[in-house]
Design a protein around this nucleic acid. Sequence first.
DNA 1: TAGATTGTTAATCGATTAACAATC
DNA 2: TAGATTGTTAATCGATTAACAATC
Lengths: 220, 220
Amino acid sequence: MEEREEKEEKEISQAVIGRLPRYFRYLGELRDDGVERISSQELSGRMKVTASQIRQDFNNFGGFGQQGYGYNVEYLYNEIGKILGLDRNHNFVIIGAGNLGRALGNYLNFESRGFLFKGIFDCDERLVGREVRGVKIRDIRELEAFVRDNDIEIAALTVPKASAEEIVERLVRTGIRAIWNFAHVDLNVPEGVQVENVHLSDSLMKLSYNINRYMKENDR
Amino acid sequence: MEEREEKEEKEISQAVIGRLPRYFRYLGELRDDGVERISSQELSGRMKVTASQIRQDFNNFGGFGQQGYGYNVEYLYNEIGKILGLDRNHNFVIIGAGNLGRALGNYLNFESRGFLFKGIFDCDERLVGREVRGVKIRDIRELEAFVRDNDIEIAALTVPKASAEEIVERLVRTGIRAIWNFAHVDLNVPEGVQVENVHLSDSLMKLSYNINRYMKENDR
DNA sequence: TAGATTGTTAATCGATTAACAATC
DNA sequence: TAGATTGTTAATCGATTAACAATC
């Protein structure tokens, strides 16, 4: 008898998603080293996570392995790439051509993963017209038109927190799919617009907490 | 009768620590707005976390509130600052004077939180001698001496992954306390050296996953 | 005092780990 | 076939939420 349930895509937890890029990186390295197959047991040793977790994680997406054999490295690498959406290109723009914005524009690794740097914007007249890795810095007023005309999916936001909110509204209205947020504020977006925060100072604070904790537990 | 137990500092989970910087930010804003007191209920509304979690989180560190009143904003802000180690300065250096390294050096917000940019290093002769926000780029060979002589706690690592491992060994031997790792590798350090990873491409991949997921669940 | 709101215990939920039958 | 290792169910652990007595 046929299964009539709408085979409902069970929601994958963000905890699992958060681990995928790391699996992807390790598998890429294994592949580059010419390794053909690997067991959850051995991957566990290298990555310092339990073999059980590895198998659970992969099985969220269906069976990638084979009993008695393990996982084919090349195949698994490609599958995880597809899950992460790395089998197609993603156009992105950078908003804010300050130090951080320009640094991101110059970062070549993103290109190799299919994240294509298409435009960069600023409101400072002195910056407009200059180039970042061959891409002209545009006036922020051109933002909407550019995003629409160039099939931009992702906007990296490296503007001061004061202007973040306004820019985000404009991006959302223009139909951006995702915001990579480096501004130190929580963004308010409708569901359907993905946000990934990179709060550098938060991460420094965690470091500082852990330094302190260790010193208290030991030194004294 | 006196409690004889060594009042053992119960380990605080990293989940809690990870939320502290955000509390700190909201409380700072409330304070700047002249708000004197706040209840877990109201903070819950603003921050979109449960009031229960807020109270649990704060109570990991002892009672900061008062029944029937709530929390004093200024006091709580300061206490969380202390917990995060923001009541003293932390000297840091940047290793790798590429785009990202220079961008971090120019980022002023860190200074205001007590993270002081003291030095920046590179192995590229063409960069050595130039300045980043008034700080001279030094030859990487001077690293050990500088770290020792200038009471450096944190090293931000913005070098290619190939050189990361070697640099980390040198830093560890020199007695660095923490590494803020922007290189796309997992670092191997002895316990007692804190590591905080900022893997930008991982975060882009998560974004890409979520874009894909949303498109699959809806558009089609 | 009455009302408000914490601190804290108990209940629930979700994520990780262990175990093992299925199967290559 | 025997050995290896997955896929998956069950057990455990930890984190979040709910509830409420303590107390300001």
